[in-house]
Each structure stands twice: as C-alpha cells, then as structure tokens.
C-alpha cells in the first residue's frame, strides 16, 4: 500500500503498538528531499531509499537534473558506494562516503532511524508529549557525533517520520520525507 504524503490525521496508536508495528516494517521505499550542508559545499537532491529486508537496502541521491550524487547498496555481497563513476566496496560506507565526498551520514543505523527507531547505539533519547521518540544522539563509524531530531511525523496511525534533521559540529543534513511506500 502507499502512504500518500497528506493522509487524514488519525488518533496516533498507543506507543507500544505503534513501535511494534513500525519494527515489523522491513520492506519500504522512502522518497525524500535531502539537503546536506557542510562548511565548503551544499548539496541537495531527491533520495530514493529502498529497504529490501531488515539489513539490505538500495539508495540513490540524485540532483534536480537526475544526475546521481551517490548510490548505496547493501546486499549479500556486502555494501558498496557508486560515486562519480566508480564503484567502491566497503564494510563501513559512512567512512567511505566521508573520504570520497567530504560529507557523510550515519548509514549503519539508517534503516532504523529513518523509521523513527533509535537503535542500540543511540543515547540521550528524548520523547514528545505523545511518548514518541523525537530526538537522540548517535555516534557513527567515523566518530562523528550526530544530534538527530524528528521535527514532524505523518499525521496517521503509524506516525512515521516526515521531517528529520541531523546536526554534527560542522554539517547539517535535512530530510523532508515526501512519501512512505510500505
């Protein structure tokens, strides 16, 4: 089914069953507008994140011309990045992205935090008035400390994240999720 981006507001599930349902979702496609701002560059584009199962995903960030900024795959054959015409294999794609592109994001737990789930590595977890996780800190494989915040959720039962910001000491990444396809 496809969650259109402006569903009618519905009383959110109580949190235990909401989290149980979200945890059970391991196949989804997210379409998001993503902006990455570092001290020396500003990149933005359309992100298509296709989660295939709990672990494996395919992701593509492309600019408005459709030119791919990066592509990520995590499959049985391990994880790889396609950047500027070359494909690189790496266990730790966050560090590789950092070395190649000069910016990165906490990719290891992304399949979880995209859905609003903090994951084991998260600390300083904060909750909103409805008991939903709305912020936490995450240290990624490059050692960068990210402050993650869910600025808004979809106004439906599952209340999956809509606007997410990730801030490190010199980089800001903003996600505006336009749709969830489950």
């Amino acid at each position: 089914c496809s969650l259109i981006s402006k569903p009618a507001p519905v009383q959110a599930l109580d949190n235990k069953s909401r989290l149980a349902q979200i945890n059970a979702i391991n196949e989804y496609t997210v379409q998001a507008s993503v902006g990455i701002k570092t001290p020396d560059e500003s990149v933005s584009g359309n992100l298509t994140w296709q989660q295939l199962n709990t672990e494996h995903y395919k992701a593509r960030l492309a600019n408005f011309l459709g030119i791919s900024l990066f592509e990520l795959t995590n499959s049985e054959q391990g994880s790889s990045i396609m950047l500027r015409g070359e494909r690189y294999q790496a266990a730790d794609t966050s560090s590789l992205l950092w070395q190649l592109a000069g910016w990165s994001m906490p990719l290891a737990d992304m399949p979880l935090w995209l859905k609003g789930i903090p994951g084991q590595a998260a600390t300083a977890i904060e909750y909103d008035e409805l008991g939903r996780v709305n912020a936490f800190q995450l240290v990624d494989s490059t050692g960068i400390i990210w402050q993650l915040r869910y600025q808004s959720f979809f106004a439906d039962e599952l209340a999956l994240p809509k606007k997410i910001s990730l801030i490190s000491d010199d980089t800001t990444i903003s996600f505006y999720i336009r749709s969830w396809q489950l």
Partner: peptide
C-alpha cells in the same frame, strides 16, 4: 516532480531553491 525545486539564472546570479527543505 519528483520534488518542487526552482533553478533561476539572470546571467549574473544562479539561484537554487529547494521548497520543501526551505533552502
């Protein structure tokens, strides 16, 4: 589609506006 973006150039400045990200 897929996202509302605007690229405008008057020959001197080139503006890129991503509406949803308000950037």
């Amino acid at each position: 589609e897929p996202e509302p973006v605007l690229l405008v150039s008057d020959g001197t400045n080139l503006w890129f506006y991503n509406e949803l990200l308000e950037q």
